[in-house]
Nucleic acid binder design. Structure first.
Lengths: 139, 139
DNA sequence: TCATTAATTTTGACAAAGTCTAAATCTATA
DNA sequence: TATAGATTTAGACTTTGTCAAAATTAATGA
């Protein structure tokens, strides 16, 4: 991703220390939660309110600058890899999240057929499993 | 689904009025939330505590008698259609949820490849869109 | 049928993740 | 540099769900 300041200006968003820091944190820590990101930002700029972290994440998500994913049993996670159709692989045990490219491009069953009269705009796929590290742990 | 009482006994679960009522409510109202179900149960048997609704839903889910789905921006929803591989179609606007059969059976990209060393046990698919009724509403 | 034991239900406190509001502060512009 | 509008902050609040202890109920055997 390009310079965070440029990104913000391109989207008509006033540039603030909080926005820059959150955007950088998302870029450096893909799939982090709002809490994780707040922690990262505090290490960089000293302080940020919880509300501001949410404000910034929401406005960045709305503008399509970042993407929010919300697996079950997990708070929302954020990533700056937007615009492609990748999916996610989530560890049931520790929540570790990895990107997964669709192996065959547009898979047949993901085509947005006009099921039930819905206007479908996204097919979200989450693969659930156990990560290598959790496979090794007892029980 | 068969007689709820038989179902409970088959799974070694003591039969209680609360369990019977919750199980019937799930059968009659697929994709309902815990709150919705509590409401339905109260109309049938008069009263049930919030905790009991959760207790029952959790034990039924653990036993595989019902299935829990948790789309983003929504509390958990429950259904008694278990054991097949159907997916869901959710309205972004009102949360209306419909079942979707995978049109082509086992789709290529849903095969559990050994990505990143994970042991994959489920490919969850949620189609997001707008339901017919919400398409008609102004904005 | 009744007593007993183990499980379930209830009540109320608590927790996590987010949102809402108003006041204070800051950014962008002229 | 002053100003207007947007952002940030602080703190209360909401929703969804869990925890723990006491009270109640179901299943079993005598």
């Amino acid at each position: 991703m390009q310079d965070p300041e440029t990104t913000l200006r391109q989207h008509d968003l006033p540039v603030t220390a909080q926005r820059l820091a959150v955007l950088r944190a998302v870029a450096h820590h893909p799939h982090a939660t709002a809490d994780d990101l707040a922690e990262q930002v505090r290490q960089k700029i000293g302080a940020i309110s919880r509300q501001s972290v949410y404000n910034v994440l929401n406005v960045l998500t709305d503008k399509g600058i970042i993407r929010r994913i919300q697996p079950a049993h997990s708070p929302a996670r954020y990533e700056d890899r937007v615009g492609d159709n990748h999916h996610h692989l989530v560890c049931r045990s520790c929540g570790l999240t990895e990107d997964v490219c669709c192996a065959v491009g547009a898979a047949p069953c993901l085509t947005a057929h006009a099921h039930h009269g819905f206007k479908i705009d996204e097919a979200e796929v989450i693969y659930w499993g156990t990560c290598p590290s959790c496979q090794k742990k007892p029980r």
